[in-house]
Nucleic acid binder design. Structure first.
Length: 687
RNA sequence: GCACCCGUAGCUCAGCUGGAUAGAGCGUUUGACUUCGAAUCAAAAGGUCGCAGGUUCGAGUCCUGCCGGGUGCACCA
């Protein structure tokens, strides 16, 4: 188990007392004891609205009614004797409001010197969770929609790890799909290139227009090519035949086209990983679709699906000759079939089928495994592995991948239906594992605001202009490339840094600008909840003011600068005094006096907010919603900025008050930094 | 047609398993740098939480029905 924080411990004790008291006083067994934070600090630090619930239960059990306030009064003594509680009040219609011993709690929180290195006790012993994210088709440069996926997935990974979980990160590579085929069609039929030509071209490209950028444009040209130059025209069956040929050759393998496709796709994967590393996003393993095919994962899954009666062969009707999985997810109509086709009448498997096989492997239910070889090593030594179907290439040093207890798939909510099919198929094959082991971590798309389209020089129809957003389209080359956006953010941040810190070296300035750019971008993508469509707007995304990453970073930097300038002796004396309050009642009384003063409530509110970090991380992990943590980080930064504005720490003359201010600033600095790190945002020394 | 998601301040969005007087950012108006950094802070204005019922001691939150918007329902991935 993870080391419990001071605050969570107190919560647990209070809940237990409520449970006992309800049992002893009213003979009622409570399953859940809701605990809430009162709207204002004058109403206490935590509140239990449990008397209302008990009033109802007592009436149901005995027929006699008791006033909630009276019930709360009876429960009160049980809470008052908990260590760390100063007093308990009954308020409103029957709330039990608990007030903590501020001096004691501050001292305890201050002494938790663990910050970001807090060891989650033996995560190795925890059941493995797998998070799959990024999953970009390897045929063109990444755009901001892909970034939302990767940043969301990566933040979630960090949140799980902060909560003490063991996590494996996978990035699925669809290297044999239609989109790769399209780019390959471009090289062969539009450019007239063979593998050697593509290699030479790749070598000759300028750094600011690398291979993935080239393919971005080429892919858009292929889209036009299929439609004979008219973006809104019909697709030409003759041209589509070229795609089918290429796709077939890729799937078959062991030929020149497949080699070309392999070069293109893996070069693009390299580009994607480079882009993602700019944002601090890394992976453990890259499972590839080519291996799912060549190592016959599908055949194994197919046999089991047939044996279990999960799928059936259609002999008549529209789906004659296909293997389908019946579903009741929606009703079938003339236009739409209710059943999901897994094997086409020509014998080939659909995406959903392959995904079922892959999901079974991820859960350790398939009974087959990939071979693995190293793909690349990050500067700190962390290695990413890629799958291979060639046993001779297998590196025995490879860790054991797959076999997760819970698998989170970070995938666009537009794929909810397919994900539901996959989940149900797995649950039908392995009822002991069930549907809950497969989690679709769905999120809404990133679209473009009309203003963003204008800035990109995209012509909008009357109709589109009236809409709140316009969907991006890789096929049309319509979108904001990830690296372009990061470049713009870095340029903007560099300008701000230069204006403030002319004394830094070029290298230092660029490093700080990079941290700010990453902070801005990651926060921008995380501040929205998952089911909110992001209408991308340049002005908003490039802003460093208001609810942004740099705002949060700035608060932490200011806190840091206090400690850079604070006399170490003063700091040491303050720490000694605060810790002494844990043992010495007189010292504790001195601290209590500070909290009882005019600004006491305001100071305490900040302490309680900072104390809530673990709770928020746990909640973000359970809800799989990093936005909760992002909102919290902003709230904490905002509260700190207010504190910073109202109190002079270094110049404070009252030694006791100064000690309290120092302890609070230190606590908030540590908590804010940890919250930001858990979102993948670092805090520079200066900015 | 069916399924899922969303309607909260001028705009963009929060609102944890139902809880006390519905909150932020942007924008608007007005103030605060001789101070540990103004990428900051403060104040003002801004709301029938889409509409109508229901459950509950209590509903922005849960249920039903409408209205409005988005997405999906491929022998694409």
């Amino acid at each position: 188990m993870n080391t419990r924080s001071t605050l969570l411990n107190l919560h647990a004790q209070l809940r237990e007392r409520v449970r006992q008291a309800a049992q002893e006083q009213f003979n009622i067994a409570l399953e859940q004891i809701p605990l809430e934070v009162p709207p204002r600090v004058e109403l206490g630090d935590v509140a239990f609205p449990i008397a209302f619930e008990l009033a109802k239960r007592i009436r149901q059990a005995t027929g006699s009614s008791r006033a909630p306030r009276q019930i709360a009064d009876i429960l009160r003594p049980a809470l008052e004797t908990v260590e760390g509680v100063e007093r308990v009040e009954v308020a409103g219609a029957g709330y039990l409001n608990v007030f903590f011993d501020r001096a004691r709690l501050l001292a305890e929180l201050f002494s938790e010197k663990r910050s970001s290195t807090r060891p989650a006790a033996e995560p190795e012993a925890r059941p493995k969770r797998i998070v799959e994210h990024t999953n970009i088709n390897p045929n063109k440069a990444a755009h901001i929609g892909h970034l939302r996926n990767a940043v969301l997935g990566d933040a979630f990974v960090r949140i799980l790890r902060a909560a003490g979980e063991r996590v494996e990160v996978q990035n699925y590579i669809d290297n044999t799909g239609v989109q790769v085929a399209d780019t390959v069609v471009g090289f062969i039929h539009l450019e007239g290139m063979a593998l050697s030509d593509v290699r030479a071209l790749d070598q000759s490209l300028p750094v600011d227009r690398p291979f993935d950028y080239y393919c971005w444009d080429l892919y858009a040209r292929v889209g036009l090519f299929y439609r004979n130059g008219d973006p809104d025209g019909p697709e030409d069956p003759e041209k589509l035949r070229l795609r089918a040929e290429v796709l077939h050759a890729i799937e078959k393998g062991d030929n020149e086209i497949a080699e070309l496709a392999d070069y293109v796709s893996m070069r693009i994967v390299e580009c994607h990983l480079k882009t993602m590393e700019r944002l601090g996003i890394r992976y453990d393993v890259l499972p590839r679709e080519s291996e799912i095919l060549h190592l016959h994962f599908w055949e194994r899954a197919f046999e089991r699906l047939k044996a279990a009666g999960v799928i059936r062969y259609e002999t008549e009707g529209r789906n004659a000759g296909c293997w389908v999985m019946p579903t009741d997810l929606h009703l079938g109509t003339e236009e739409h079939e209710a059943d999901k086709i897994l094997v086409r009448s020509n014998g080939t498997v659909t995406y959903a089928g392959k995904d079922i096989a892959y999901q079974l492997w991820k859960l350790g239910l398939l009974g087959l495994d990939f071979y693995y070889k190293p793909f690349r090593t990050y500067p700190d030594g962390h290695r990413v592995w890629v799958t291979t179907s060639d046993a001779r290439e297998h590196d025995p040093a490879a860790p054991k991948f797959g076999g997760g207890t819970i698998v989170y798939n970070v995938i666009d909510s537009r794929q909810s239906y397919t994900q539901e099919v996959v989940k149900r198929a797995v649950a039908a094959l392995a009822p002991e594992v069930g549907a809950d082991a497969s989690v679709h971590l769905a999120y809404e798309m990133v679209a473009l605001s009309p203003a963003a389209c204008e800035e990109l020089g995209i012509e909008l129809s009357e109709e589109d202009r009236a809409r709140p957003f316009v969907e991006m389209s890789g096929r049309k080359g319509l979108g904001v490339k990830a690296d372009d956006l990061i470049d713009q953010l870095e340029a903007g941040a560099l300008g701000e840094v230069e204006a403030r810190h002319a004394d830094l070296t070029e290298e230092e300035k660029r490093a700080v600008a990079h941290e700010i750019a990453v902070g801005a971008l990651r926060y921008f993508l995380l501040k929205w909840t998952r089911n909110s469509v992001i209408a991308f707007d340049f002005k908003e995304a490039l802003s460093f003011d208001g609810e942004t990453g740099p705002y949060c970073q700035y608060a932490a930097v200011r806190a840091g600068s206090i400690f850079r300038k604070l006399d170490p002796e003063v700091r040491e004396r303050a720490a000694t005094m605060i810790e002494d309050a844990l043992r010495n009642g007189e010292t504790a009384d001195l601290l209590r006096r500070v909290f009882a003063s005019e600004s006491g409530d305001e100071l305490w509110t900040l302490v309680m907010l900072a104390a809530r970090l673990e709770e928020v991380i746990a909640q973000a992990a359970t809800a799989a919603e990093p936005a909760h943590l992002a909102k919290y980080a902003f709230q904490l930064a905002k509260a700190f900025n207010l504190f910073y504005h109202r109190h002079r720490i270094i110049g404070e003359e009252d030694a006791v008050k100064q000690a309290v201010l120092i302890a609070i600033a230190d606590l908030v600095r540590r908590r804010l930094t940890e919250a930001l790190n858990t979102l993948g945002i670092s805090v520079p020394e200066r900015m």
